[in-house]
């Protein structure tokens, strides 16, 4: 509906579309992981395994590994930061 140059529907339609898009992305991720204990729940285990692997070679603190996940429409990425500064500081 357009009147006096204003489009009265566009604003509402825009936020409703945003809602639908957000839900579709989120639910696509959640449905795949229902009850299986995988999905974001595997991240603590992944973090522990990475930490264990690093510890075989260098001494690192228990909180040296930081994992973040970013979910986008088409791809998800996992960002893993390993803090080696503490190790370097100790070596000095």
């Amino acid at each position: 509906m357009s009147m006096f140059g204003f489009n009265f529907r566009s604003r509402k339609a825009k936020s409703a579309q945003t809602a639908k898009d957000r839900l579709q992305i989120l639910l696509a991720h959640e449905r795949g992981t229902e009850g299986s204990g995988s999905g974001p729940d595997y991240l603590p285990l992944l973090q522990r395994d990475i930490l264990a692997a690093i510890k075989k070679h260098v001494h690192v603190e228990g909180d040296a590994v930081d994992i973040r996940m970013e979910r986008e429409d088409d791809i998800s990425s996992i960002e893993i930061n390993i803090d080696l500064l503490k190790q370097a500081a100790r070596a000095d």
């Binding site: 957000r22 989120l26 973040r68 996940m69 979910r71």
Partner: peptide, 11 residues
């Protein structure tokens, strides 16, 4: 979802 950070939840 209400805060708009649903894609950034890891832990």
């Amino acid at each position: 979802m209400i805060m708009g950070c649903e894609r950034r939840v890891v832990f």
